[in-house]
Amino acid sequence: MTPADLSLTVLHAVRRAVDDGVLRVEVPPRVKVERARPGGAGEYASNIALTLARPAGRSGLEVAGIIEERLRDVPGLAGVEITGPGFLNFTLRGDVGRGLVRAIVGAGSAYGHGTALAGNRVRFAEVSEARAGVVVETVVGLLRSQGADAAYGGGDERMYVRPGAYAVDELGVDAARWSLLRAAPQDRPLEGAPLLVQHERNGLFRVRYAYSRVRRLLVNGEQLGVTPAYENEYAYENEYAYEMTVDTPLHTSPHPRDLLSALADYPLVLLAAARLRAPDRVARHLEVVADGLLGFQHTVLPLGDEKPSAAHRSRLAVAEAAGTVLAGGLSVLGISAPDRI
């Protein structure tokens, strides 16, 4: 993990805290990390918690604790320590990409599933409205993926879901479900017609196309004698900036570090989606993963007279991991992942 990766990781943690409603502040445009001073804790440090404390109406220590909670078990971080009035101190761990990719491919469609909600029993009341039925059914699946004992029917828990038609005959199952689940339950469903158009503005198309690209890359790699094997950390000659901004577009970078960050975030997204009864979070994150994959796909396999190398094997392994997450996320939403589009 580079300083830039660390900066972006901390920024993501702040954004998650804001999205979860724990921190009521505007997400800052950037997070600065610096080398720890002699005698300090860890390798890098940030004062972001102190910066956010006043607008959040909390102490620096409270804000630091909230951010630290969302940095636990992040690949690449060996430890996070809070010192003084709320400084965050980080110790990095090398070779994170290899462990993350292996974990994803090894878990397959179960990657991101866990036991955080074990012991919770949730029973939803039956509903007659079409969209509510699709949303509640999906939320039940999300809760079960995190270890909860959840069921649709036989209970009294209700969700507010803005009504919408489940237009399977008009759109097909995949587009019909995406139109209902991509928007937050309380928001109006997406219009159906644009979801049938193969265009980059169509999130459903981008996600499914990205998965199909992974399948094609694996086939082409086999033909070229390139098999997935994460073997290096993508060392580039240029130095990394120490600040990443909140509006840094994921899809513009040919380097897989942003894609790896999105893959590492996926378990946290599933958990938040289950806790908040918000399947739209999964759909939105799949778009992030798809954009990351599509942004660096052209560097995965050898071009022209280029000979296969360890870098190509590593890139293909990252692509395979991305495909695994895309397929798993689509499955959670009840949407198919086609090998070809």
Score class of each variant (00 low, 15 high):
residue 1 M to V: 12
residue 2 T to D: 11
residue 20 D to R: 13
residue 22 V to Y: 02
residue 22 V to N: 01
residue 22 V to K: 09
residue 25 V to R: 03
residue 25 V to T: 11
residue 26 E to H: 02
residue 28 P to N: 06
residue 30 R to K: 14
residue 44 Y to N: 02
residue 47 N to A: 15
residue 50 L to N: 02
residue 51 T to W: 01
residue 57 G to K: 10
residue 60 G to W: 02
residue 65 G to A: 12
residue 67 I to D: 01
residue 73 D to V: 00
residue 73 D to W: 03
residue 77 L to S: 02
residue 77 L to R: 07
residue 77 L to P: 05
residue 82 I to S: 04
residue 90 F to K: 00
residue 93 R to S: 11
residue 95 D to N: 15
residue 99 G to C: 00
residue 100 L to T: 09
residue 102 R to V: 09
residue 103 A to M: 09
residue 105 V to H: 05
residue 108 G to K: 14
residue 109 S to N: 07
residue 116 A to M: 03
residue 119 G to T: 09
residue 126 E to T: 07
residue 128 S to N: 07
residue 128 S to V: 06
residue 131 R to Q: 10
residue 132 A to R: 10
residue 134 V to M: 07
residue 136 V to F: 07
residue 137 E to R: 15
residue 138 T to G: 00
residue 145 S to C: 02
residue 148 A to V: 06
residue 149 D to M: 08
residue 151 A to I: 12
residue 152 Y to W: 14
residue 154 G to R: 12
residue 154 G to K: 11
residue 164 G to N: 06
residue 166 Y to C: 05
residue 167 A to D: 14
residue 171 L to Y: 02
residue 173 V to D: 02
residue 174 D to K: 04
residue 174 D to V: 07
residue 175 A to N: 08
residue 178 W to I: 06
residue 179 S to D: 03
residue 181 L to W: 05
residue 188 R to V: 13
residue 190 L to F: 15
residue 192 G to T: 09
residue 200 E to A: 08
residue 208 R to Q: 15
residue 209 Y to N: 12
residue 211 Y to K: 03
residue 212 S to L: 07
residue 214 V to R: 10
residue 216 R to P: 00
residue 231 E to C: 06
residue 232 N to S: 15
residue 232 N to Q: 14
residue 232 N to P: 01
residue 234 Y to G: 05
residue 235 A to S: 07
residue 237 E to C: 00
residue 254 P to H: 09
residue 256 P to V: 07
residue 257 R to K: 11
residue 263 L to W: 03
residue 266 Y to H: 14
residue 278 A to S: 13
residue 279 P to M: 02
residue 280 D to N: 15
residue 285 H to K: 04
residue 286 L to T: 08
residue 288 V to Y: 03
residue 294 L to T: 01
residue 301 L to I: 05
residue 301 L to M: 09
residue 301 L to V: 09
residue 301 L to D: 09
residue 302 P to W: 08
residue 308 P to I: 05
residue 312 H to S: 14
residue 321 A to R: 06
residue 322 A to F: 08
residue 323 G to I: 13
residue 328 G to V: 10
residue 329 G to V: 14
residue 331 S to D: 14
residue 332 V to L: 15
residue 337 A to G: 00
residue 339 D to Q: 08
residue 340 R to A: 13
